[in-house]
Design a protein around this nucleic acid. Structure first.
Length: 744
DNA sequence: CCGCTAACTTAGCACTCAGTCA
DNA sequence: TGACTGAGTGCTAAGTTAGCGG
């Protein structure tokens, strides 16, 4: 009944309708004002270094282009109207905490192992396994061929045949896959809110049970060995496993861990173990390291065994049947227990993330499907049949109290359709963005403070691609902000800076504690408004005290159905890509140059969206190596030039063909050297530019794949140079439907 | 109106693996 | 031949948004 009832109650989905038709009813989001939360001010060390890319005077082409283009859009207007005074929000005092780099995570589960030893190309093997073996066999053969020059002709021929066979099989496999692909984008869409009609799966896969410590591995407290209860021992091991990591030294982490650990202890243990500093996890830690080491050094056979076992698990739990089609599940494994690692300065870091039992899990599937069996001796929390949602299983996580879901893979219909829809909404914004921009420019003069704040916020969201910025509960998460939650300490106003007028300097931690640092010249009107918003406020006060995301989004949805703050990010990202591709790519370029242009366009978007990454650990090192290569190449070039000169001198006046040939040879050597040097230098700059910019996120989430597909078609660049297999699967809909004349 | 949270997208980092290099 | 490395993949935290119920 849940299914039917809920289906009936389903409200009109604006975004969806926006895709399909133009007559849309707007949503009925409620206005809301939350109590302003106090927040901490300290900045993370993390972003400090890597923020050049956002500066106004950036030397990089891509980062300035957007701003120049933008500045044309935003015409300066004079004179401000008068309006209501600023109401000061009530704020609590903030606590000061230092922030450290992001935390990392270490999977506890056994991972698939690499498979080196390849059995004979078996006719018996099947599925993906077969393909892999074939290709591995192929590689092996190629190597062999190179190594052994003396192999008999017969043997060489056979090898070639095998390579040919492997290639043919690969192509065949590809075709098969293509034929099996569910071309859902050619089908009619379901009525609103219905996500599926039939759903069957095996339930989530649970991590293995805890294996107690062997007797010879002991935990010591205050110098004395203590045999811990199973529950306490398990949690102790979580901590011991992380001992190499920096955050086990942090007070917050240690305190949280110790508090939660004590909850798992027996009464006696709790009485005895009262000080974390007296705990010695050394033996546990050593055991863990040994295990890791042993796993690394496992024989190929054993690794293969593990790999095959994982393959089996994937086959059994990794897929579901959705409306007659087999679809891959994204995260079918229940998250293993461990210690919570938040990002940045998270107040809950170190807390125990508990083991999820089947009794915690809600299953969602068709009533008429084979209901998944809970593990032996267990039962599900609930089995429901709700086809208005896309998840197959869910549970509540204990640290933050939020829901976790098992959902489908990105290449599934459910995800693909939603993605497509997202880009269609963004494209629709294109048709009314001028009007919206004009409107908020006008709103900058409004008599209503709220309206002015909304206008300025919208200006930031549009121009700088900031996130909406929901309020967050203090003490629950790290102190990060987005547009609506900006506080006065996050911006600095400069009447003039570096020769530019009305510059706003942003410096705050955004999602994932990634620092956003940017200096932006804004219009005089925006600047004056900001000054006004900051009047009589102090650190910790909200910049937009009359605005929140609900109000903003409500307003946006009245301007265009389906429009929300994040649509601007999608829209501006995709527009930037399209623009940059047009600007940078030259049809006469070769493929390498084409790809460089694509990457640069991609990079422009990543910079706009502030997608950063930690510089690779070996970055400096590998950069030094490259630099050394460049140097040695330079020397080679100098030498080659010298030799050329010498050869010329020798050949001068002579008509000896040998000498002339030598000159030609030297000339070519110089040329080759120059080319190689240039290529290396380009590579070096490219790598340097990319040092802390992550291209993947924008490619995966913000760039309409049809732009890239059309570009590839137009420029005759093979698509797999741009998208890897996973990405091609995810964007199958776009690859299939896009014509070269596609315009975002 | 308000607070809460379900549901879904977006995000960066850790780890693996295949190919390459010394 | 082992060490190294970059691309690809997995993991799960951290956002956004809509909708519900009091």
């Amino acid at each position: 009944m849940a299914q039917e009832d809920k289906a009936e109650k389903v409200k009109v989905k604006k975004a969806r309708e926006a895709v399909l038709s133009d007559d849309l009813s707007s949503g009925d989001a409620h206005l809301k004002f939350k109590k302003v939360k106090a927040k901490s001010t300290e900045k993370s060390q993390r972003g400090q270094k890597g923020t050049k890319q956002h500066q106004v005077k950036s030397p990089k082409k891509e980062s300035t282009d957007f701003e120049i283009a933008d500045d044309k859009r935003f015409k300066e207007e004079a004179n401000d109207g008068d309006f209501m005074p600023v109401e000061k929000g009530k704020k609590r005092k903030r606590k000061l905490e230092s922030v450290d780099g992001p935390s990392s995570s270490t999977a506890l589960s056994v991972r698939p192992k690499k498979k080196k030893k390849v059995p004979q190309d078996g006719e018996g093997s099947s599925g993906p396994e077969k393909k892999k073996r074939k290709s591995e066999a192929k590689n092996k053969k190629v190597k062999k061929e190179e190594e052994e020059h003396s192999v008999t002709a017969k043997k060489a021929k056979k090898t070639k045949e095998e390579i040919e066979a492997a290639r043919a099989l690969k192509i065949k496999k590809k075709e098969e896959e293509e034929q099996q692909r569910w071309r859902w984008w050619e089908e009619e869409k379901y009525e609103d809110g219905i996500k599926w009609k039939f759903l069957e799966h095996k339930g989530p896969y649970f991590p293995p049970e805890y294996q107690p410590l062997p007797d010879n591995v002991k935990f010591y407290y205050d110098g004395k060995p203590v045999k811990l209860s199973l529950a306490a021992e398990e949690v102790a091991l979580y901590f011991a496993q992380m001992l190499d990591h920096e955050y086990t030294t942090k007070d917050v982490f240690r305190d949280n861990f110790f508090k939660d650990w004590r909850k798992e202890m027996s009464l006696e243990e709790r009485m005895l173990i009262t000080d974390l500093n007296k705990c010695d996890f050394g033996a546990l830690h050593a055991m863990h390291r040994e295990k890791v080491e042993a796993r690394k050094n496992m024989s190929k056979e054993d690794k293969l065994v593990i790999k095959e076992a994982n393959q089996k698990i994937l086959e059994e739990y990794g897929y579901c049947t959705l409306d007659h089609h087999r679809e891959r599940i994204g995260n079918f494994k229940i998250e293993p227990p461990g210690l919570f690692r938040g990002r940045g300065d998270h107040p809950k870091q170190g807390m125990l993330k508990k083991r999820i039992q089947p009794e915690d899990v809600i299953i969602n599937c068709s009533r008429d499907s084979r209901i998944p069996e809970p593990p032996a001796g267990h039962s599900w929390k609930e089995v429901r049949h709700d086809n208005t949602v896309t998840w197959l299983a869910s549970w509540t996580e204990n640290v933050q109290g939020s829901c976790k879901y098992v959902m489908l893979n990105a290449n599934s219909k459910l995800k693909g359709e939603k993605d497509w829809e997202k880009y269609e909404v963004a494209r629709k914004l294109k048709t009314c963005v001028d009007a919206i921009r004009a409107q908020y420019q006008e709103d900058l003069k409004s008599k209503q403070m709220g309206t002015r704040q909304r206008a300025v916020a919208l200006y930031f969201i549009d121009k700088l691609a900031l996130r909406a910025g929901n309020e967050k509960e203090e003490g629950e998460t790290a102190d990060t902000v987005g547009c609506c939650s900006l506080r006065v300490e996050h911006i600095t106003l400069h009447d003039t800076l570096d020769g530019e007028k009305h510059v706003v300097e942003f410096d705050f931690l955004g999602k994932d504690c990634i620092r956003y640092y940017n200096k932006v010249p804004v219009s005089k009107r925006v600047f004056k408004n900001l000054k006004l918003f900051m009047q009589n406020k102090q650190e910790g006060d909200d910049l937009f005290d009359r605005l929140n995301t609900a109000m903003l989004n409500k307003h946006l949805s009245s301007l265009m159905p389906g429009l929300t703050a994040k649509v601007f990010r999608t829209y501006n990202a995709s527009m930037t890509l399209q623009q940059q591709l047009k600007e940078l790519s030259n049809p006469s370029d070769n493929q390498a140059e084409m790809l460089l242009s694509y990457n640069r366009a991609n990079r422009a978007v990543a910079v706009l969206c502030n997608h950063q990454r930690a510089p690779p650990k070996t970055f400096e090192q590998s950069m030094a190596i490259l630099q050394a290569k460049i140097e040695s190449r330079k020397e080679q070039l100098a030498l080659a030039k010298k030799e050329l000169k010498q050869a010329k001198k020798e050949a001068k006046g002579s008509s000896d063909s040998k000498l002339l040939a030598a000159v030609e040879k030297k000339k070519k050597a110089v040329q080759r050297c120059e080319e190689q040097l240039l290529r290396m230098e380009v590579q070096a700059t490219d790598r340097e530019e990319n040092k802390q910019i992550a291209l993947g996120t924008s490619k995966l989430n913000y760039l309409d794949p049809r732009i890239s597909v059309a570009w590839c078609k137009n420029m005759e660049v093979p698509l797999d140079k741009i998208y890897n297999k996973t990405q091609r699967d995810k964007f199958a809909w776009a690859i299939d439907m896009t014509e070269p004349d596609f315009v975002f």
